[in-house]
Design a protein around this nucleic acid. Structure first.
Lengths: 149, 149
DNA sequence: AAATACCCGACAAAATATGTCAAGCGCAGC
DNA sequence: GCTGCGCTTGACATATTTTGTCGGGTATTT
């Protein structure tokens, strides 16, 4: 249950690759494609969205590629996912783009899903690309605030 | 993103109706269907699964229907959802029924999804049907441990 | 001018979700 | 025993979403 589509997964991995190069130049789609094993065409779609959302800039021509518009510590995973997949909407009755649910009045579970959604967003918003980079270099032990008492 | 299928939503609502009658007799599929506006046929599928999982008992014959096997405070929403939708598996590489991901070694995001999944499960396991009942009667103000400091 | 790299929209295959339908079985009460 | 109510089971149909692919275009640097 509660699967994340590949779009979101690939998107975060792509952003990770670009973040990895932050301050060292651009990252091309081809590089991302090879490192993360995702097709060039599909990555184009994702990066297009991310560019329009202002999370990355693109540079054309030879030596071009993508660059983060902010430093990795200022970009959260939640932000990336929201751009690619829309807001967390566990149920359709909470989807802001929908019509809402006709049964709202006596729907006891509604608040349950709402609270869960908020918790998830708050978690994802608290993780930045920088933290993923740190993890890769083992600068800090793995801990996203997961299970501490 | 992170949608819950109707299976899970309807299932929790069905369990809520049965819990509502706890100690007062059985609840028929027809009653659930009318109150929650879900087709009888579809509910049959869901309750069948819940019965095999031991969350409800069925009583046949006139006056029959479904009954909780435990009191509402002992049945968590997480349990219901796991029966109907399987475990939380944000990504396929974490799905215990799958083959795992070939890129495990250098997948920095894996731990991220794992931690998120654990948080979600722990949240859902912490909410019981009794708490949903309380909410309906406004015995307690709405608060699932959502956003307190 | 050529090479490199991004941009855009249409389209298609596959998986998943969302149910419906029909026939059968088993128990309680008369 | 037998009848009615209600659950049981599995197959099947439809709709939606996901997951990409493909082809041609446009902009920019060398």
């Amino acid at each position: 249950m509660l699967k994340l589509s590949t779009k979101g997964q690939y998107g975060v991995r792509a952003m990770f690759e670009i973040a990895r190069n932050f301050g060292k130049g651009t990252t091309t789609i081809r590089e991302i494609s090879e490192r993360q094993e995702v097709s060039v065409s599909y990555l184009e779609q994702l990066l297009n969205k991310l560019r329009h959302a202002g999370l990355v800039d693109s540079v054309k021509g030879p030596g071009g590629g993508y660059v983060l518009t902010r430093e990795p510590s200022k970009v959260s995973v939640g932000e990336v996912l929201r751009v690619l997949e829309g807001p967390v909407a566990i149920t359709t009755c909470l989807d802001p783009t929908g019509d809402g649910c006709a049964r709202v009045d006596n729907c006891v579970t509604r608040m349950l899903w709402k609270t869960l959604g908020e918790k998830i967003e708050s978690f994802l918003d608290g993780i930045s690309l920088q933290e993923l980079l740190n993890e890769e270099h083992n600068i800090v032990p793995l801990d996203f605030g997961g299970n501490r008492p």
